[in-house]
Design a protein around this nucleic acid. Structure first.
Length: 414
DNA sequence: TCTGGGGTCCTAGGACCC
DNA sequence: TCTGGGGTCCTAGGACCC
C-alpha cells in the first residue's frame, strides 16, 4: 500500500509559518525574476489566478483583492522540505522523496480504518513539528495514491482509494492523472477517452502501439497493477543546470561573461557537493521570445573536456570559451545558462589517455571557497569574473528573510 | 514594461560493431 | 535474380513531472 504525502500550497505554507499576516488572505509566490505565479494560496486560487500566470497580468488585482506577493525563497523552502521529510521518515523507513513537497511512503495494508487513522496522525505530526499542512492519499499503486492525494483536498486531508475504484475513476479528468499531461489528454480526448476509467479500460495493444509503454504503465496502475516501485535510493543526477532570466536585457559580452562565470561557479559547487564530476559543459543564450519586435536569437555551444572535473576554474574556463563561440553583438539577450552533462561519480575517474600529468586532486581553492560559503553563507567569497555590481542579476523584489538558514535572519519572538 | 527553472524518460533514426 | 542477424551508442525531439 502506497501513501502519497503532499504539502498544501507548499511555498505559500512555508511563508505563512513565519509570517502569520499571510493567513487567510490571497498569497502569490513568484518564480525567479518575479515573472510568473508559481504558488498560490487557496484564496488566490478562488479569485481565479491560474498556475504559471504572468505576474504583470494580475497586477491590477493586487489592490482590489489585497493580494500579498512574495519572491521565491528557495533557501527557506529547501530547508522546510527537509524538516517535513524528516518527520515522514519516522512513519515508514520505506520512503521515496519525490519532489520538494511530496513523498511516497509504503505501508502494510491493515484496514481502511487504520489507514485513515494513520493519515490523520501524519497530518497532525507534520503540522505540529513544522507548521506545514499536508494531505495524505492511499492507493495500491503510486498512480492511485497520487489520485487519492488529489481527492484528499476535498476530504479533510486523508483519502483512501478503495479496491474497486471504478465509480471514482469515472469522475477523474485525464489531466489529473499522474503521467498524462496536456498533449496526451488532447490526443486521448479526440479518440473519445474522457476520464481515468475509460483510459484504464483501453486495449493494451492499442495503447502501446499508439502511445507507447509509458501510458500503458499508467493504464495498468489505474487498474491496480503496480508497475512503478518505490525508489528509495535516488540515482545520481545525469544533468546539472543553472540558468536565469536577467533582471533587465543584456547586450554586452562583459555582462554575459559575468553571468556565465557566475552560473558555472554555481553548478561546479553543486556537483562538488554531490561528489560528482562532469566532462561536458554547455552554454546557451536566448533573447526574449515574447518580444516579436526585437531580433530573435538563441544558440548553444558544447565543450567536451579531456578529463572529468569539478574544478570551478576549469568549468568556468570551458563555459566562457563556449560563450565566445555563440555570442553575437547587437542583440538583446534575456536569458542564459550553463548545463553540465556526462556526469560521473568523483570516485571513478576516467583518465585522459594522452595526458602526461596524474589525474587531478581536488582543487584546494575550491575546497576553501566551499568551506567559507558553507559557514558564512552563499557567495561570501566569489571570483571577480562573476561580477560585483551585477546589474543583470535576476529580480527578487519581495523575498522574505532566510528564517531558518541564516543566523542574521532568525525570527524574533516578542 | 513586465512572461521561471530544473529535471526525467522514451522513441526513432542513423551510425556503428561483430 | 539472389544480399543476415543481433546488437550498442548517440542524438534530437517530444512528452512528462514539480
Amino acid at each position: 500500500m502506497f501513501a502519497l504525502v503532499d504539502c498544501n500550497n507548499f511555498y505559500v505554507s512555508c511563508e505563512r509559518v513565519f509570517n502569520p499576516s499571510l493567513e487567510e488572505v490571497p498569497v502569490a509566490v513568484l518564480s525567479n525574476n518575479d515573472g510568473c505565479v508559481i504558488a498560490r494560496s487557496n484564496e488566490l486560487k478562488s479569485i481565479g489566478v491560474p498556475m504559471g500566470c504572468a505576474f504583470f497580468k494580475i497586477r491590477p488585482l493586487i489592490e482590489k483583492h489585497n493580494i500579498k506577493v512574495l519572491s521565491s525563497n528557495y533557501a527557506l523552502y529547501g530547508d522546510m522540505s527537509h524538516r517535513v521529510m524528516t518527520v515522514l521518515h519516522d512513519f515508514s523507513p520505506r520512503i521515496e522523496i519525490y519532489s520538494i513537497d511530496e513523498a511516497f511512503l509504503e505501508f502494510e495494508f491493515t484496514s481502511e480504518h487504520a489507514l485513515y487513522q494513520l493519515g490523520e496522525k501524519i497530518r497532525k505530526r507534520v503540522k505540529q513539528h513544522t507548521g506545514i499542512p499536508v494531505g495524505v492519499g492511499f492507493g495500491t499503486t503510486k498512480t492511485l495514491a497520487k489520485l487519492a492525494n488529489h481527492l484528499s483536498k476535498d476530504a479533510n486531508g486523508v483519502y483512501f482509494m478503495p479496491g474497486s475504484p471504478e465509480p471514482i475513476l469515472s469522475k477523474i479528468n485525464l489531466t489529473d492523472i499522474w503521467g498524462v499531461g496536456r498533449r496526451l489528454a488532447a490526443r486521448l480526448y479526440k479518440l473519445g477517452i474522457r476520464n481515468a476509467l475509460e483510459l484504464s479500460q483501453l486495449d493494451d495493444q492499442f495503447i502501446s502501439k499508439n502511445f507507447g509503454v509509458v501510458l500503458l504503465r499508467t493504464a495498468y496502475e489505474l487498474r491496480g497493477k503496480s508497475c512503478l516501485s518505490l525508489e528509495e535510493i535516488q540515482d545520481p543526477k545525469k544533468n546539472v543546470c543553472c540558468s536565469r532570466t536577467f533582471g533587465r536585457p543584456v547586450e554586452s559580452l562583459e555582462y554575459l561573461h559575468e553571468a556565465v562565470a557566475s552560473y558555472a561557479s554555481n553548478v561546479a559547487a553543486k556537483i562538488r557537493k554531490d561528489k560528482l564530476r562532469t566532462h561536458i559543459v554547455t552554454v546557451f543564450l536566448k533573447t526574449n521570445r515574447f518580444r516579436n519586435d526585437l531580433p530573435q536569437y538563441s544558440n548553444l555551444s558544447t565543450i567536451t573536456l579531456p578529463e572529468a572535473t569539478n574544478s570551478s576554474s576549469k568549468i568556468i574556463a570551458a563555459a566562457v570559451k563556449a560563450l565566445s563561440n555563440i555570442f553575437r553583438p547587437g542583440i538583446m539577450y534575456n536569458n542564459c545558462g550553463v548545463l553540465l552533462q556526462g556526469i560521473e561519480s568523483a570516485g571513478v575517474l576516467q583518465g585522459d589517455l594522452f595526458a602526461l600529468a596524474e589525474p587531478e586532486e581536488n582543487d584546494k581553492l575550491d575546497d576553501a571557497v566551499d568551506d567559507i560559503n558553507r559557514r558564512f553563507g552563499r557567495n561570501t567569497v566569489f571570483r571577480l569574473s562573476e561580477g560585483v555590481e551585477k546589474p543583470w542579476q535576476t529580480a527578487r523584489k519581495w523575498c522574505s528573510p532566510h528564517y531558518t538558514t541564516d543566523w542574521n535572519d532568525l525570527p524574533c519572538a516578542k
